[in-house]
Design a protein around this nucleic acid. Sequence first.
DNA 1: ATGGGCACCTGGCTGC
DNA 2: TGCAGCCAGGTGCCCA
Length: 271
Amino acid sequence: MPELPEVETTRRGIEPHVLGKTIVAFELYQPRLRWPIPRTLPGALAGLRIESVGRRAKYLLIALERGSLIVHLGMSGSLRVLSAGEPRRAHDQYDLRLDSGRIVRFNDPRRFGSLHYVEGDPLEHRLLRDLAPEPFDAAFTADYLWQLTRGRRLAVKQLLMNSRLVVGVGNIYANEALFRARVRPGREARRLTRAEAARLVKAVRTVLAQAIRVGGTTLRDYVGADGSPGYFRQKLFVYERAGQPCRVCATPIRHRVQQGRSSYYCPACQR
DNA sequence: ATGGGCACCTGGCTGC
DNA sequence: TGCAGCCAGGTGCCCA
């Protein structure tokens, strides 16, 4: 999916257009997303004012005057702010129509995205309550990561992508952070040194922050709330660069499949 | 507890 | 040109 930078870019993009606005209508075109959307939802949302737009991991949290929407973009989803009357396109799944005359439209070709409405604290929802710290949280430290790697035989890249360890890091940014930390994706977690754990924590933060600054990474489907792509693709060191020269040492970048996901690394820079 | 594999779904590309 | 096969920003769930 959209990983943390894309979700955060979306959050920042929609926030100024929806804050304080009231949902006039919720139009559901496709109830079959990752989890079925209840047919009763449209009625429940009409008339509610939007009070804040937050984010936890890769979930957007849209707080209403009563309850909250929990939005996930899945692998191919995007949320855009459009003018009312904008013609629908393939894979538009739902619209939030606002009293400002604008609409927030969710498009998702693969339908791995999801939408929940909860009355209570969204952070207590079963999908959110067991999530690990945010990468920018003070709790995500070298010691924390290093402790969690002790005795673990799985590859360090799997660890980085496990949302019970740290959230927001998907396949692109796991590969990119490992390059910056000079650690190969296939390294057993228990073989990580304390110094490497420290580099990795720093690299995760740096790469996510840089990506947020340029609006995320667009490979295929992702666009920000105004429809523009993210520009971090131009800054990728390894992702989807198999066979191309390493931007640091010119050694060809290698590709291998790990746990069914593509990993990329520089065999010279990363150990 | 840990880790692996599968499932959900569509579109785009490759190669025969 | 057509079509089979493979791949893609995620992640919950089931099983060993």
